[in-house]
Design a protein around this nucleic acid. Structure first.
Lengths: 127, 127
DNA sequence: CGGTATCCGAACGGATACTG
DNA sequence: CAGTATCCGTTCGGATACCG
């Protein structure tokens, strides 16, 4: 079971709860960041790339294609020279994006606690 | 920059927004599923394993350790023979878990649309 | 500008064997 | 029961070169 881009999709077993399915969409390094970048409006390819520091051309293209295939983003091409390609969230993508917004707030409030926990854990295990 | 388990943590660049930090916690194959499994109460190691179909012992242990280090779950050992190890969400873990619950609902309502979008995309690209 | 194709090392992650 | 250790194939993902 292989998609166009070329990775194998994990099997979805019968007993897999629905929760698993969203995670297959958003639980990877870049997808959520791309959705987040497009949350405020449509962007051109290069603009997305500049907003997501560290993403390579390959991974950006791969991620955008995946999201397009899943119906979460739309890709509009203006066939000029040079070409202009605009990406934007579909209503479906926007509905998902909304659910993820609180996560940012959570981090702002709680990330220091995570860092503190890590330090304490490392201290304990060190000995 | 290596943690105890042995993988390299990605560098967090200065301009990385806070959003990126949560994603580093939850954007991997198993973490969110473990949090979800513990959402209804504490579970023993074997119980967690049985709830998450397809997870290997190695990945479960690795994921549990990571979550413990991040302060999101607690690990309580009863030193009997055989030993009993109970895992539960900390208040911090619970606060994060709450934010992720809506995602399940989203999938129930919208996953058919994702599947339909995929079919249409594959149809279009096939030719 | 917005890609595609290929190479290749690094990391992921399953299978197996062993342990207190 | 709840792990640890090791082996080893698979996948991820960056770097580079090239294209309409």
């Amino acid at each position: 079971m292989t998609n166009l881009i070329g990775f194998k999709q994990p099997d979805i077993s019968i007993s897999a709860c629905s929760y698993r399915r969203v995670l297959e969409i958003i639980s990877n390094k870049w997808t959520a960041l791309v959705i987040y970048a497009l949350d405020e409006g449509s962007l051109r390819y290069g603009e997305v790339r500049r907003r997501i520091e560290g993403i390579s051309q390959k991974m950006l293209t791969q991620t955008l294609r995946q999201l397009e295939r899943d119906g979460l983003i739309r890709r509009d091409i203006t066939p000029s020279v040079p070409p202009m390609v605009e990406y934007s969230l579909t209503p479906l993508g926007e509905s998902l994006s909304q659910l993820m917004r609180p996560l940012k707030q959570w981090t702002n409030e709680n990330y220091p606690l995570v860092e503190k926990a890590r330090e304490e854990y490392d201290q304990r295990e060190e000995e």
